[in-house]
Amino acid sequence: MEQIPFFIFAAIAVLSAIGVISVKNAVHGAFYLMITLLQVAAIFILLRSPFLAAVQVFIYVGAVMVLFLFAVMVLDIGKEELRETFNQQGVIAIPAVLVMLALIGYMIIGGKVLAPAGNLTDDVLIGNSTEVLGKELYTKYLFPFEVVSILLLIALVGAIVLVMKDRKR
């Protein structure tokens, strides 16, 4: 019986995601987003990927949300609260989103998976998917792994350069 936990996690995730985009205060939005990210980690557990769940909690809930809260704190945007929350393009945006929801929902429900199934047994998926994932990451996916590490280095240097004050003036 996995359905009951799935529906609980999914309902909390969707409700707090709606909370993210509808609250006025950015700090409250950050906390709602944290709830959504934790539910997504639980969904990863239901998909038998404990490594992904741990990474989700460490990186998203740990690092990314702290970065968001830090930015909100540094920028001191409390005074922005009283302004109008939504912009004026809701008349166009809401029907567009609803049409997209209907179209892709129709495709998801009517679609059929034609991709060939892989060769992993349930034993591997439930037991030690982390070990298999690590071996794949360091052998078959070594080049993307290195590229992503260079990307992280560029992001690190770029973020420092962007927020550094110009010393010449």
């Binding site: 909100v72 945007i77 922005e80 912009n87 393009q89 945006a93 567009a96």
Partner: peptide, 11 residues
């Protein structure tokens, strides 16, 4: 919907 509707860039 959040990207299209909100004005606060952090949101």
């Amino acid at each position: 919907a959040g990207v299209l509707l909100r004005r606060n860039i952090i949101i």
